[in-house]
Design a protein around this nucleic acid. Structure first.
Length: 985
RNA sequence: GGGACCAUAGCUCAGCGGGAGAGCGCUCGCCUCACACGCGAGAGGUCGCUGGUUCAAUCCCAGCUGGUCCCACCA
């Protein structure tokens, strides 16, 4: 016998182990045969050293639901799991650990020793996330678990890199990139987060060379002069004064008449030792906006993306001012000499080949070695002291931050590897345009197109140690040899240099997303032509969050289409569908984040956590430690008792039912509790079945059930199975979850179980036997339909409820999905709906008239039809039990002082003389009548509209007419009832 | 500046061209022989505003208001 309540913690681990031990997760498990249709999903690989957060829980729940659904449908299913090496994130964690334990940092350790440390950390913590996914119930084929730095996947990376290099789609270049001074590496545009911060805009005078002057004239829109003065300077505005040191020119718009007199002349950069000041030309370019600031822009090609483009157009020299930690450079020749070299460039009229970016250090000696922000203060102070600062304004400025390091990103001109994304994007755009790959919901396609059509070169090199080292070797003259192995590179090098040539490998590693981009085929064995690759590629659907559409989805599309070809040589998409789900937020709609202290850890919801532990967890790791008391108070207020052990099923169901397409999920712990209760409800319905010896029987044929109540539940089960199936096929998780929830609780438990109690305790043996079988059959179907959402409790009940046999395999997860077309029965549902309506009406009146719940009362049927009497006879025990009646008798006229109800075409009366107040009852009837009359009026207005009759479809008109007829009949009955009551008053 | 999304019950959200729904919360009554993590009965909404299309608009279109997010960005 089942325990009284379901205890998830006792059961989940045991069930999961059975599935694993029995090979239920293996690719193809449960498939109907050799020719079964395939269904494959690759998991979005979590960071190998990470731990499960609510986003993972949602993502993997949605995948598992589909995978379990399709597996039960008999498809050949593969859910490919794996983890990502997460370059920066992992290296960061290990570096922090070294610092915390006061060990030598990575530079002191050296590259090999440091990487060994990371592998150790991976070995130590790498199982965490996998085990957490298992607790969630994820039915991945763990035997195929992959890691982006596995040998096979590393081969895939090498091969792809070499191939793209040979195709001319990967190249090395010196370009302006986003530099993260904390991690001392380049990062891609996507890893930069622009945040508005309080800043300043400083206005400085750049004096003209040789004391020259000009007439500065400003005019308004009508051409009237508003200002005229003689100036010996040009006014420059900047938010980053420290970059003045690297200016190569001052640019004005060609149409800007204010500065026309001085275009081509030189002006002085007003910083540094006076005797060695540099002069730079005033040039024209379309970039400056005459309406903004002074209309004149300083051009610092090596430290600003817009300036970089201007400098390239105009051959303006670019000078790197900072080192790898973004401190002002402290290398090379003294400033005086560097400044002289720079002046030579000006005299030469520019610098087309950017040779001096690194060799000339234009940082004045007294600023060398300062960090950027100190240097800024010094430059401002020095200019101000010289009287060259015109003004300073407070201004909101957008500042770029590293998404992981949280430090200000510095644009830096460095040598990096790039991928020609523009070229790779072309087929990736067409594939979506042609619907070869479809997004759900579709509006994400627009986001995808928007980004892909404006895509920039992708910087793929990182100056990190943890990752795939770039397979490029440099020869003695700096030539590049790109090859899959050092031996191949050497062979190529020896062709020109002869044997024994010295080669050095490029120390950089690849962006983590480079290997992720290969995930759909690298995990299936590529570059080997494995059977799995042939069978499961392209994958069926990718399920992921919108936040990595650019990082990951777009790049998989690009690399997949470029690399994978079918038998005819046509490019192959990596996945047919892309389902984009929302973010999981906290109850207030805020993004969950450790530094805010509002994280809800999925594992805590699954296994429970006490309030003290919860508070402790939320108050450690806050970005602002001073808010800890507030966080603690809020947490205690909101969750006074912490979290119960709600179990994985409850969490999964909550996420599924809230996962309506295209909307963020505000996770509510109350709802998780609600669906835990739902599990208990199912558990108790099963106990009921068990106590009443309801067992499935292989000889039971639902199509041949006789009893109307049984035929009704069979039809409703079939209908629900259809709803759930259709919803899941369309990725409408919430509709599917909702349908099975409603059926389980409100149809099966609330009505069916109550309706059959008299049958199970009655004397009709045939009915009893059939009902037991039907109850078990319907419950089995509930378990099946619910299994993808709540795998643990359903599997446990499947195991406990009946013997296993031909139609009832040992494991629910490998049983067959219900296909019940053609089992509906309209006549049964009409009759049962009538019984339900009758019981509901009686209960309602009893409650309104305050009849004590324990009191049994009689029911009078006024002039009932034969059909009504037949129904009453068939369901006497049931109706009396559910409505708490002691007898039901046909009468011609109701007793005096009886409350009257109308069910279908029959008026019935509940004699409540002495209990019931006549006026109250009259009032109740009048209210009822008014309600229906207003409906009749509404419909009447429609039906008297000639336009409506003419233009509306026939079935709509017919429906309105029948509604009108029904309502009129009901009102007539109610009015009769009211007349009887009034005659008594 | 470009783009996407949202506004429906107290809260969180479904829905959708022809009869306003769920969960939670709330009120009232019940320890009714599966379940108090429960049972029964209720209260509660001019479906953001203004126009338009239509026989018919909560739903489609336009504008407005308020909010969220993404991308880009003026030195």
């Amino acid at each position: 016998m089942l325990e009284k309540t379901y205890q998830p913690s006792e059961i989940e681990g045991r069930i999961y182990k059975s599935w694993e031990d029995e090979g239920c997760f293996a690719a193809g498990a449960g498939a109907t045969g050799e020719n079964a249709e395939t269904f494959s999903i690759v998991i979005p690989p979590p960071n190998v050293t990470g731990s499960l957060h609510m986003g993972h829980a949602l993502n993997n729940t949605l995948q598992d639901i589909l995978v379990r659904f399709e597996r039960m449908r008999g498809k050949d299913v593969l859910w490919q799991p794996g983890t990502d090496h997460a370059g920066i994130a992992t290296q960061m964690v290990v570096e922090r650990q070294l610092a915390e334990s006061q060990q030598p940092d990575r530079h002191a350790l050296g590259r090999d020793a440091f990487i060994t440390k990371i592998w150790e950390w991976k070995a130590e913590s790498g199982d965490t996330i996998t085990n957490q996914l298992k607790r969630l119930g994820a039915s991945c084929d763990w035997s195929r678990d992959r890691f982006t730095m596995d040998e096979g996947l590393s081969d895939a990376v090498l091969k792809t890199f070499v191939q793209l290099y040979n195709d001319g789609l990967i190249y090395k270049d010196k370009r302006l990139v986003n530099w993260d001074p904390e991690f001392r590496t380049a990062i891609s545009d996507l890893e930069v987060e622009n945040i508005e911060v309080d800043g300043h805009m400083w206005h400085f005078k750049y004096p003209l060379a040789d004391g020259e002057t000009y007439e500065y004239v400003e005019k308004d829109a009508d051409g009237n002069e508003t200002l005229r003065e003689t100036r010996d300077y040009i006014s420059i505005a900047t938010t980053r004064p420290e970059t003045m040191l690297g200016d190569g020119a001052v640019a004005v718009h060609p149409s800007d008449e204010r500065y026309a007199p001085i275009v081509g002349k030189l002006c002085e950069i007003p910083v540094g030792p006076k005797e060695h000041r540099r002069f730079i030309p005033i040039i024209t370019d379309d970039y400056p906006d005459p309406e903004f600031g002074s209309g004149a822009v300083k051009i610092t090609g090596a430290h600003d993306f817009n300036d970089y483009e201007v400098a390239r157009r105009g051959n303006i020299p670019m000078y790197r001012l900072m080192d790898e930690v973004a401190d002002m450079r402290d290398d090379g020749v003294p400033y005086a000499e560097a400044s002289k070299l720079a002046m030579e460039l000006v005299e030469a009229g520019g610098e087309p080949d950017r040779t001096y970016v690194d060799t000339i250090n234009l940082v004045p000696d007294e600023y060398r070695g300062l960090d950027r922000f100190t240097a800024r203060k010094r430059v401002v102070a020095d200019c101000d002291a010289e009287g060259l600062m015109i003004k300073v304004e407070d201004k909101k400025v957008m500042q770029p931050f590293g998404d992981r390091s949280r430090v200000v990103i510095e644009p830096m001109l460095t040598d990096q590897w790039f991928c020609n994304a523009e070229e790779l994007a072309k087929p990736a755009i067409s594939a979506v345009e042609n619907d070869d790959t479809k997004f759900f919901p579709k509006n994400w396609e627009k986001t995808y197109f928007e980004w892909m059509r404006n895509i920039q070169p992708w910087c793929i090199s990182r100056q990190l140690w943890w990752g795939h080292q770039i397979p490029a070797w440099y020869g003695p003259d700096g030539e590049i040899f790109v090859a899959e192995s050092e031996a191949d590179a050497r062979a190529a090098a020896e062709e020109t240099h002869g044997a024994g040539v010295e080669l050095t490998r490029d120390p950089d590693v690849l962006d983590t997303w480079f290997s992720s981009a290969l995930w759909p085929f690298s995990t299936l064995g590529w570059p080997e032509q494995t059977p799995e690759l042939a069978r499961y590629y392209p994958t069926s659907v990718l399920i992921t969050g919108f936040d990595i559409i650019f990082f990951w989805v777009a790049r998989m599309m690009m690399f997949g289409l470029h690399t994978m070809k079918d038998e005819t040589g046509a490019p192959q998409i990596p996945f047919n569908d892309v389902y984009i789900h929302a973010l999981v937020r906290d109850e207030d709609g805020k993004k969950m984040s450790k530094s805010e202290g509002n994280v809800i850890d999925p594992v805590d919801l699954i296994q429970g956590i006490g309030i003290d532990d919860l508070v402790a967890k939320r108050t450690t790791g806050l970005r602002k430690p001073e808010i800890a008391p507030t966080v603690a108070k809020e947490t205690r207020k909101r969750y006074p008792d912490g979290f119960d052990a709600y179990g994985a099923d409850a969490l999964r169901f909550t996420l599924a039912v809230m996962a309506a397409m295209g909307r963020d999920i505000k996770l509510s712990v109350d709802r998780v509790a609600g669906y835990r209760n739902f599990g208990t409800k199912l558990w108790n319905a099963s106990r009921f079945a068990q106590m009443n010896e309801c067992a499935t029987s292989e000889d039971f044929d639902p199509a041949s059930a006789h009893h109307v109540i049984n035929r009704w539940i069979i039809g409703a089960t079939a209908e629900t199975a259809g709803e759930v199936t259709r919803a899941l096929e369309a990725y409408r998780y919430n509709d599917a979850a909702d349908a099975i929830y409603r059926f389980t609780w409100h149809t099966y438990c609330d009505w069916y179980v109550e309706l059959i109690k008299p049958l199970l305790n009655g004397s009709d043996e045939d009915a009893k036997v059939e009902t037991r079988k039907t109850a078990a059959w319907a419950l089995d179907h509930v378990l099946k339909l619910l299994h993808p959402f709540m795998p643990f409790i359903t599997e446990e009940l499947w195991d406990k409820l009946a013997e296993h046999g031909r139609d009832r395999p040992r494991r629910l997860m490998l049983s067959s999905w219900p296909a019940l077309e053609g089992l509906s029965s309209d006549d049964a549902s009409a009759e049962v709906d009538w019984v339900i309506a009758l019981v509901t009406e009686i209960r309602s009146v009893r409650s309104e008239m305050n009849v004590p719940a324990g009191t049994k009362i009689p029911l009078e049927l006024i002039d009932p039809s034969r059909e009504v009497m037949r129904r009453i006879d068939r369901h006497t025990d049931t109706i009396e039990r559910l409505a708490r009646l002691d007898e039901m008798t046909p009468v011609d006229e109701p007793s005096k002082g009886a409350a009257q109800i109308v069910v279908g075409e029959t008026t019935m009366a509940l004699p409540l003389a002495g209990v019931m107040d006549v006026d109250t009852e009259a009032e109740r009837l009048r209210k009822e009548i008014t309600k229906h009359q207003s409906e009749i009026a509404k419909i009447g207005k429609k039906l008297s509209n000639a336009q409506f009759l003419e233009k509306a479809p026939d079935h709509v008109v017919a429906e309105q007419k029948s509604r009108q007829t029904d309502a009129e009949a009901l009102v007539a009955k109610l009015e009769e009832a009211l007349a009887r009551i009034e005659s008594m008053a």
